[in-house]
Design a protein around this nucleic acid. Structure first.
Lengths: 114, 114
DNA sequence: GACAATAGTGTGTGACGCACAGTATATTGT
DNA sequence: ACAATATACTGTGCGTCACACACTATTGTC
């Protein structure tokens, strides 16, 4: 029986929810702009489309975790984002949550069911 | 500045999506019924409400990953679930996905941003 | 001038954890 | 005997977000 690709893609997508926020916030201790962030996340093993990242950056800004400023000096205008102090706090707590979850998941998937 | 609890709860919930499927599937190599599963997941560090677990079990069955049968011998009728062969395959692949994700997340959150 | 790369915005959809509401029966406590 | 609690389950709607689709604009390369 072959695996249902649609179902697998769907489950994979559900696993990604939430972790993208953590990935992005982890990079934003120093200012970065969207296009370069796509590249550097890719290099670090987190594949994300521009169409997903730009709205995410804007949402995190509206939620008060990031703030932005335009750099228009160069050839192309770029919107730089960085974490706010609130974003720093939320990031720290979320990272802890993630680590607890990983421990729990490691424990439960290694425990043999009776 | 105090942390926005609502936002944190929301982000925490997003992190949970997907992992509950993995948690539940990990337990279903041997048949189990809903109420006991809530208890045993709780003991293994995965807190889940019955109102969340029962619909999840039914959804996984409709997706072909679990199948069920009623046990009506005892004092109370119980619906036992266990993984299908398709569910076994999906579980193995999803577990691998999760482990890749954990590695990527560990890498990216430990990497100091320039 | 055509095409690719760079850099961004706007909008709608599908899926799921959750909350709320509910049913039914057995067991325990008074 | 009756109330409270525990056990065991079903039904339904909502909020949220990663994604897909569509789009704009300018620079760089050939």
């Amino acid at each position: 029986m072959s695996i249902d690709k649609d179902l697998l893609d769907n489950l994979r997508l559900e696993l990604r929810r939430g972790t993208l926020v953590l990935s992005v916030l982890s990079r934003m201790n120093t200012p970065k702009y969207g296009y370069a962030l796509v590249q550097s996340l890719q290099e670090l093993g987190v594949s994300i489309e521009p169409n997903t990242l730009y709205p995410l950056l804007r949402r995190l800004e509206s939620q008060g975790l990031l703030e932005s400023r335009w750099e228009t000096d160069g050839a192309k205008p770029r919107k730089y984002y960085h974490r706010t102090s609130n974003g720093n706090e939320i990031y720290d707590v979320l990272l802890e949550e993630w680590q607890q979850m990983v421990k729990a998941m490691t424990h439960i998937t290694e425990e043999v069911s009776p």
